[in-house]
Design a protein around this nucleic acid. Structure first.
Lengths: 149, 149
DNA sequence: CAGATGTCAGAAATACTGATATGG
DNA sequence: CCCATATCAGTAGTTCTGACATCT
């Protein structure tokens, strides 16, 4: 039987969404493995690069993992010397985290690989289709985030 | 700071893809909880409804989980009397699984809830945009599945 | 007081790896 | 022989739930 025809679920947008995310994630994991990084770890480094000093909770939301997971994840990155975390909070309970030089170096390598995958995905679409896809996804996200009714 | 502006990652299609899938999954889990079902379990029932007698491996691929996970998942559904699994293989090593009446009944309830969520997502788009989204996702999937180069 | 944060602990679901066996 | 299947076992990473303390 064909790739997607045992089910017929492929007709549903939600199913396609999951499917696309699944392949994308698989490709990212493959690419990052040689660097000793997982996809959430890469996401964390990328977030820190764009928001130096971010809090654990902010990073968790941005990487779509729980606070607990991000916490353990940060310890690992810290032990490897890729990030540095403040020992004490300057404000509130937030312990700001920043990239080290080593972390920035590894992120550069990883980002190149990931951007290639993103490009491979986007290049299958025309420029217009690419913009529409981005818009449509954003619209869907807003619709599902908005509470009920 | 704004919902998605600490990072700037929101500009990337891959990030939006993950974001959309994340919210969608969260909404599904919420809706299915009262029925005592998880999203992978629901996916399994839906697949069996459309492909009665499917094998463990087929179900695993369709629900985007590993064979091991689908195996344990099927045991749970079987113990609850929602599915029935052949004791012996008629052909190859495949042990065909089918929905029970009870399973079909629960699936009907669940499907209604899930379709509401899918509708809420799709309704945020025009009919044309919806079709384009589906097409674009399919294109992306194919591009990422195709090996390299 | 409400809300966000950081952290800890236990239970559960899931994935990864490797191994074995069977059938096409 | 090659490949897909089903299954088992062990390890690890992730999530969920609940809880508590701290700070705005």
């Amino acid at each position: 039987m064909k790739q997607n025809e045992p089910s017929g679920l492929g007709a549903l947008v939600g199913y396609r969404l999951k499917e696309a995310q699944s392949v994308f994630r698989a490709r990212m994991d493959e690419a990052l493995r040689p660097l000793g990084l997982t996809t959430p770890q890469y996401a964390c480094l990328e977030l820190l690069s764009r928001s130096p000093g971010a809090s654990n909770s902010e990073l968790a939301r941005g990487a779509f993992v729980t606070r607990q997971t991000m916490n353990t994840l940060l310890r690992g990155l810290s032990e490897r010397g890729l990030v540095e975390r403040a020992a004490e909070a300057q404000v509130g309970r937030v312990l700001p985290t920043t990239l080290t030089g080593e972390g920035r170096r590894l992120l550069t390598q990883a980002a190149t690989l990931i951007h290639e995958i993103e490009q491979r995905m986007v290049n299958s679409l025309s420029e217009t289709e690419g913009r529409l896809l981005h818009q449509a996804l954003t619209r869907c996200i807003d619709a599902l985030r908005t509470l009920d009714t």
